[in-house]
Write a protein that binds this DNA or RNA. Sequence first.
RNA 1: GUGGGUGUAGCUCAGUUGGCAGAGCGCCAGGUUGUGGUCCUGGAUGUCGGGGGUUCAAGUCCCCUCACUCACCCCA
Length: 419
Amino acid sequence: MTFQSPKGTYDLLPPASERVLAVREALAAPVRQAGYGYVETPTFEDTELFKRGVGESTDVVSKEMYTFDDKGGRSLTLRPEGTASVVRAVLQHNLHNGQLPVKLWYSGSQYRYERAQKGRYRHFWQVGAEALGAEDPALDAELVALAWRGFASLGLKGVTLLLNSLGDQVCRPVYRAALQDFLRGLDLDEATRARIEINPLRVLDDKRPEVQEQLEGAPLVADHLCAACKAYHEEVRTLLTALGVPFTDEPKLVRGLDYYTRTTFEFVHGGLGSQSAVGGGGRYDGLSEMLGGPALPSVGWALGVDRTYLAMEAEGLLDEAPAARVQVYGVPLGEEARRRMFLLVEELRAAGLRVDMAFGGKGLKGAMKGADRSGARFALILGERDLAAQAVQVKDLTTAEQTEVPLAQVSDVLKGKLQ
RNA sequence: GUGGGUGUAGCUCAGUUGGCAGAGCGCCAGGUUGUGGUCCUGGAUGUCGGGGGUUCAAGUCCCCUCACUCACCCCA
């Protein structure tokens, strides 16, 4: 082999690729149904957008970005997440000057320079949704519910929703100081102590048992929320409960990006190896201003397409044989029949059937194998005898039953049989 | 960035104290000159990840290196 896919990336091939495509569509379906509009943004942006938007203190920005200079000397970065780009696009095109909230969804590749392992790759796919320009707990609840429905529609049973509030500009600084006081008294390694000063909330997210033990008794955001944040969070919880969306309060859920405020949530699953999140998001009321825009309180999420696929695999939802590629498969015998079959196949496709035929001059046996492997219900066998009779042999591959059908009627007959 | 595991046919893998490169599946052909899936028979395919070393002899032992993979860290 001369080349292989770059480290940390992988190819999606049939039949798995078809299923991933279906996962992507299923995750997007609820938001589309809810009236969110589709947005596509470039896969690379001005590096500064992510530094300002995602936050210089995050690992994503400090060590996981694919950054390069283009020939014009601009520093560009392959997007490590989608929200900053969407906010940038909204501000650039003044979508927020219209009716609010602006509701958008997207689907695409994201890139992070990390050591790959199960469920974590340098190139991965997300479906995301954002509702910008409204401070309304119902919007938070709506988005959470739409994501929840996406997972449920795929048959997933093991997804758990974790919910928390990070407070706002009023109460977060107070909490942050209290947390820092607590953390400074702990026995932690140097990197973690440095994190206390830069982004203390993320220390709560440390998975190491020796760290988690010490975090017993740490001050929690929930106890420091101001009245407004507390009321807001209670309303989100009430609405989710009313919708029947089950959630678990997770006071230590902080998430890794700097822009989150108030509501944060994460959908976790146990089938992803060492990873746990199949999706996550929250409110980011200050992001627009960080990017030079007006106040634009917003909420959104991103769901991992490939991680959702892994979760489905872990639940055994992908065990059944994949769907047949086509319904009908042409088996021509000889040159004359091959030309006629080529036309017939196109005719049947135009009539709405899924059809393939044997290519490459295979013999009858080889062509029939092709028919079998295509998953087609019917094989159409066309040789000189049939051409002379202006007919084709229609063979039901499930029963081996074969009937002769006039060429002029094949389309109608097949459509009848396949209904 | 750090640590563990694994690299042998297209795929999954076996290969003993160092002694002729293997199996299953898949693929191709034939059995059936106009019939697949089952069955039978036959066939093709190897830089044993790469380089170096030890040895009469290395897939096997040693060193280096690369890749993959899992985990830490972090996140979707």
